Simulated scan of single mutants.
Amino acid sequence: MSTAKTERDGGHGGPSRAWWPGGGRGTPASALYWRILGMNGLIFAVGTTVLALSPATVSSPVLLGELPVLTVGLALMVLVNAFLLRASLTPLDGLTTLMTRVDSLSSGDRLAPSGNGDLSHLIGTFNAMLDRLEADRSSSAALVLGAQESERRRIAQELHDEIGQSLTVVLLELKSVMDRAPGDLSRELRGVQEVVRSSLDEVRQVARRLRPGVLEDLGLTSALAALAGDFSGTGGLRVTRCLRAGLPELDPDAELVIYRVAQESLTNVVRHARAGHAEVSLTGGGDGSVVLRVVDDGCGPPEGAGAGIHGMRERAMLIGARLTIGAAEGGGTEVRLVVPPAARPGGPPRRHAAADLP
């Protein structure tokens, strides 16, 4: 490679870069550089012209009476320069604020392009970058959650077909042995039979939680009712439900998200809330949305987001829903999921979700 080419490419074989700060020709940084330089040059040119055309003169050395004129002129140029720079660079404050508050699981938080054309282009580029990152995040989360649901179905099927069937065979064999056993041994075998039957019920319950077949067979309302029934009585928890009929139809993905959010919420209530009562409600919003609420009377909302809450937020993001977790009226925790009309079959394209956590 020739020396001339090396120097032209900046000495590293890369693209040509201008000598001014901020990068190559045509970039927003270089345009902003020239804008500021032009403003400063214009201000000093105007100041020099005014000074040259005015009756005021500057002696050498400077006379005491000329100092106020020079001071006022310098102050005016500095103030004009400060005003113009402030007006030009103010959008950067909004951009910095957006950078500090942006969340990978929250979307729709954008800065409206404003100010001069250079910064508008910068803000538009940053918004486009956020759009790409959120789209990639949503696509990756969809793949992960899809694989998770597939694995849950496989495990549930194996629990039902293999372990469930094996325990059923054990129950039948125990019954056959009990019919031929003497009285004392028969009573002992009856205790073993109850343990096996209880284990079989637990296996079936785990399989239902892993793969909500009732959701596919009977619909969302019946699935939530069955879910509330499964958790009611667990650890002394009483679960009530308020499930409205005639709600807007949702696509299968949205129904699965609602079910999983309710399931994870009730699981957190049992594990962490120390609550005696919880309510699951599914109602319609005034704008055609569907609202899921899980409210308990426990110790209050969590201080941070664990794996369960993080998973709920990711699921909400996939269908453009809004998930909020906060304090309930009268104490306890309220989980609220608002599913927009876009989650209906054939609805408009979804936007990414926004999620709030105190």
Rank of each mutant, 00 (worst) to 15 (best):
residue 198 S to G: 14
residue 200 L to F: 04
residue 201 D to I: 12
residue 203 V to F: 04
residue 203 V to K: 11
residue 204 R to W: 10
residue 207 A to K: 12
residue 208 R to H: 14
residue 208 R to F: 14
residue 210 L to D: 14
residue 213 G to P: 12
residue 214 V to P: 12
residue 214 V to H: 08
residue 215 L to Q: 13
residue 215 L to P: 03
residue 216 E to Y: 07
residue 217 D to F: 10
residue 217 D to Y: 04
residue 218 L to Y: 14
residue 218 L to I: 11
residue 222 S to Y: 14
residue 222 S to W: 08
residue 225 A to W: 07
residue 227 L to P: 02
residue 227 L to N: 04
residue 228 A to V: 06
residue 228 A to S: 11
residue 228 A to H: 04
residue 230 D to L: 03
residue 231 F to S: 07
residue 234 T to H: 07
residue 236 G to I: 11
residue 237 L to P: 06
residue 238 R to I: 12
residue 241 R to T: 11
residue 241 R to M: 12
residue 243 L to E: 03
residue 244 R to Q: 15
residue 246 G to C: 02
residue 247 L to F: 04
residue 249 E to V: 13
residue 250 L to E: 00
residue 251 D to T: 01
residue 252 P to L: 00
residue 255 E to L: 04
residue 257 V to E: 07
residue 259 Y to H: 12
residue 260 R to E: 13
residue 261 V to E: 09
residue 262 A to E: 06
residue 264 E to L: 06
residue 265 S to H: 04
residue 265 S to C: 02
residue 267 T to A: 13
residue 267 T to Y: 09
residue 268 N to E: 05
residue 268 N to C: 05
residue 273 A to E: 00
residue 274 R to M: 01
residue 275 A to I: 01
residue 276 G to T: 03
residue 277 H to W: 02
residue 277 H to Q: 13
residue 277 H to M: 04
residue 279 E to H: 05
residue 279 E to F: 02
residue 280 V to C: 01
residue 282 L to Q: 08
